[in-house]
Simulated assay, not measured.
Amino acid sequence: MSTVRVEPRDKSWTLTKVVAVVVAILTAGYMAPWAVAAVRDVKHWGVFWVNLLLGWTIIGWIIALVMSLRAQRLVVVG
């Protein structure tokens, strides 16, 4: 009795798979400063725009990260 295997018609290269995973990780890390700012409840829209427009440069990404880590404004209640 013979066995029949079904395989995809076009196989992707291993390099393509590795590049796809790396790009997915970098994409998630690209907007990380904005996510940090949103979670910390600092003014995050400025961080969003700096990160979106200048994050492709390393310096722009670092500036966005520093903006997201700045001190929060606290309000004394009561």
Results as ranks from 00 to 15, higher is better:
residue 73 R to C: 07
residue 74 L to D: 12
residue 2 S to H: 07
residue 47 V to F: 03
residue 11 K to G: 06
residue 46 G to F: 11
residue 15 L to H: 15
residue 37 A to C: 02
residue 37 A to T: 05
residue 56 W to D: 05
residue 5 R to G: 05
residue 15 L to P: 11
residue 19 V to C: 11
residue 43 K to T: 09
residue 16 T to N: 09
residue 47 V to G: 06
residue 19 V to N: 15
residue 36 V to S: 01
residue 58 I to L: 11
residue 69 L to T: 07
residue 22 V to R: 13
residue 60 G to I: 04
residue 57 T to W: 10
residue 67 M to W: 07
residue 40 R to T: 04
residue 73 R to D: 11
residue 62 I to D: 07
residue 59 I to C: 04
residue 59 I to Y: 01
residue 34 W to P: 00
residue 33 P to N: 04
residue 67 M to P: 11
residue 47 V to M: 01
residue 8 P to E: 07
residue 29 G to P: 03
residue 28 A to V: 15
residue 67 M to E: 04
residue 23 V to Y: 15
residue 1 M to H: 14
residue 59 I to R: 12
residue 34 W to I: 10
residue 28 A to P: 13
residue 26 L to R: 13
residue 9 R to E: 09
residue 63 I to K: 10
residue 29 G to N: 14
residue 74 L to Y: 10
residue 65 L to D: 01
residue 52 L to G: 02
residue 66 V to K: 04
residue 47 V to H: 00
residue 42 V to L: 06
residue 27 T to D: 07
residue 43 K to A: 06
residue 19 V to Y: 02
residue 15 L to K: 15
residue 18 V to M: 10
residue 64 A to M: 05
residue 19 V to W: 08
residue 23 V to R: 11
residue 24 A to Q: 02
residue 70 R to H: 08
residue 35 A to K: 12
residue 69 L to Q: 14
residue 72 Q to V: 13
residue 71 A to T: 00
residue 42 V to F: 06
residue 5 R to K: 10
residue 19 V to M: 10
residue 60 G to L: 00
residue 22 V to H: 08
residue 76 V to P: 10
residue 19 V to I: 15
residue 36 V to A: 00
residue 19 V to E: 11
residue 67 M to N: 01
residue 19 V to S: 11
residue 21 V to D: 03
residue 28 A to N: 09
residue 56 W to F: 14
residue 62 I to C: 12
residue 78 G to D: 13
residue 68 S to R: 06
residue 70 R to M: 03
residue 58 I to W: 14
residue 27 T to H: 06
residue 37 A to V: 14
residue 28 A to T: 10
residue 28 A to C: 08
residue 49 W to E: 01
residue 77 V to E: 06
residue 78 G to V: 13
residue 67 M to Y: 09
residue 4 V to Y: 13
residue 55 G to Y: 08
residue 16 T to C: 10
residue 30 Y to G: 00
residue 53 L to T: 04
residue 53 L to Q: 05
residue 41 D to Y: 15
residue 61 W to R: 07
residue 5 R to T: 04
residue 70 R to F: 08
residue 56 W to V: 12
residue 8 P to L: 09
residue 52 L to N: 03
residue 1 M to D: 10
residue 64 A to S: 15
residue 25 I to A: 13
residue 65 L to P: 00
residue 64 A to C: 03
residue 75 V to F: 14
residue 65 L to E: 02
residue 22 V to A: 13
residue 38 A to V: 09
residue 26 L to D: 07
residue 43 K to W: 02
residue 70 R to L: 09
residue 34 W to L: 09
residue 13 W to L: 14
residue 68 S to I: 04
residue 53 L to P: 01
residue 63 I to F: 11
residue 19 V to L: 14
residue 9 R to L: 03
residue 33 P to C: 02
residue 77 V to N: 05
residue 46 G to C: 09
residue 33 P to M: 02
residue 4 V to C: 05
residue 24 A to T: 10
residue 59 I to Q: 03
residue 77 V to H: 05
residue 31 M to Y: 00
residue 60 G to K: 01
residue 37 A to R: 00
residue 25 I to V: 13
residue 32 A to S: 05
residue 64 A to K: 05
residue 14 T to R: 15
